[in-house]
C-alpha cells in the first residue's frame, strides 16, 4: 500500500516538466523516507537524480519499499490535468500494474482520478561517490537560465571557468565568441539574488549547452541553482526543492582539446 498526499501539487508538476525531456522512462523508488529517481538520458551523457522526502508530504504511507516504472511523458500528460492549486495524491497497491494520481481542488469541489499503466524498466543504478568539489557557484537560477539560453544562440558548448575573479561562461561559434563573467555579489537585498563563489582551486571545464539548457527547465523549482565542479568529474547542477529535497543533474564534461 502506497499513498502520498502532496498539498502543493504544483511542485510535482514542475518536477516532471524539469526532467521529462531528458529522460523518457524511469523507475520511481518509494521507501518510508521518501521517493527518489535516478536515470540517465538515452545517450548516457547526463544523469538526473531526484529526491522528495516524506516530511514534505501532508500524508505519506509506504508499507514496503517499491519501485514503479513510469513513462515520464505519459506521467506529465496526466499531471498537466491537475490544476496548479490542486492537491495531488499518488496511490499504488502492491503487485498492481497501475498507479493512480488523484487531484483535489483546494475547495474540494472537484476530485479527479487518473490511473496510469506502469512499465517494466531495466535501468542501471549508478553509485555517485561523495566528492570534494574544487568550486561551487550558487547563483540565481533565472540568471543561469538566461546565460545558457544566450550562449546557445552563439555556440554549442560552454566553458565554465571559476577563478578568484569570478565565474566565466564562454562560448564560440561560426559568428563569433561570447564571454559572460559573474563576480561574487553578496550585497543584495534578497539572499536568493546573491552570487556566491566557493573556490578551493581554479577550475575550467567544457560542457554541451544543449544539456545545460535542458537542466534549466527546473528553474521554476528554485530561485537559486548550485553548480559544483571538479576536473575529471561530471558537473552537478542542483535545484533544491524547498523543505523536500532536490533535483540534481550530472553532466559529463567534454574532453579538452
Amino acid at each position: 500500500m502506497l499513498e502520498l498526499r502532496l498539498v502543493q501539487g504544483s511542485l510535482l508538476k514542475k518536477v516532471l516538466e524539469s526532467i521529462k525531456d531528458l529522460v523518457n522512462d524511469a523507475n520511481f523508488d518509494f521507501s518510508s523516507s521518501g521517493f527518489s529517481l535516478q536515470s540517465m538520458d538515452s545517450s548516457h551523457v547526463a544523469l538526473v537524480a531526484l529526491l522528495l522526502k516524506s516530511e514534505g508530504f501532508e500524508h505519506y504511507r509506504c508499507d514496503r519499499n517499491t519501485s514503479m516504472g513510469m513513462n515520464l511523458g505519459n506521467m506529465s500528460k496526466m499531471l498537466k490535468c491537475a490544476g496548479n492549486d490542486d492537491i495531488i495524491t499518488i496511490k499504488g497497491d502492491d503487485g498492481s500494474d497501475t498507479v493512480t494520481f488523484m487531484f483535489e481542488s483546494p475547495t474540494q469541489d472537484k476530485i479527479a482520478d487518473f490511473e496510469m499503466k506502469l512499465m517494466d524498466i531495466d535501468s542501471e543504478h549508478l553509485g555517485i561517490p561523495e566528492a570534494e568539489y574544487h568550486a561551487i557557484v550558487k547563483m540565481p537560477s533565472a540568471e543561469f537560465a538566461r546565460i545558457c539560453k544566450d550562449l546557445a544562440s552563439i555556440g554549442d558548448t560552454v566553458v565554465i571557468s571559476v577563478t578568484k575573479e569570478g565565474v566565466k561562461f564562454s562560448t564560440r561559434g561560426d559568428i563569433g565568441t561570447a564571454n559572460i563573467v559573474l563576480r561574487q555579489n553578496t550585497t543584495v537585498d534578497k539572499p536568493e539574488d546573491a552570487t556566491v563563489i566557493e573556490m578551493n582551486e581554479p577550475v575550467s571545464m567544457t560542457f554541451a549547452l544543449r544539456y545545460m539548457n535542458s537542466f534549466t527547465k527546473a528553474t521554476p523549482l528554485s530561485n537559486t541553482v548550485t553548480i559544483s565542479m571538479s576536473p575529471d568529474l561530471p558537473v552537478v547542477v542542483e535545484y533544491k526543492i524547498a523543505e523536500m529535497g532536490y533535483v540534481r543533474f550530472y553532466l559529463a564534461p567534454k574532453m579538452e582539446e
Binding site: 540517465m40 545517450s43 548516457h44 551523457v45 547526463a46 544523469l47 542501471e124 543504478h125 549508478l126 553509485g127 555517485i128 561517490p129 558548448t157 567544457t206 554541451a208 575529471d232 568529474l233 561530471p234 550530472y250 559529463a252 564534461p253 567534454k254 574532453m255 579538452e256 582539446e257
Partner: peptide
C-alpha cells in the same frame, strides 16, 4: 570539436 564523454566513465554500476 571536443569529444563528449559519458557519465558511465565516471560513475559505476551499483
Amino acid at each position: 570539436v571536443n569529444p563528449q564523454r559519458q557519465i558511465t566513465a565516471f560513475f559505476s554500476k551499483t
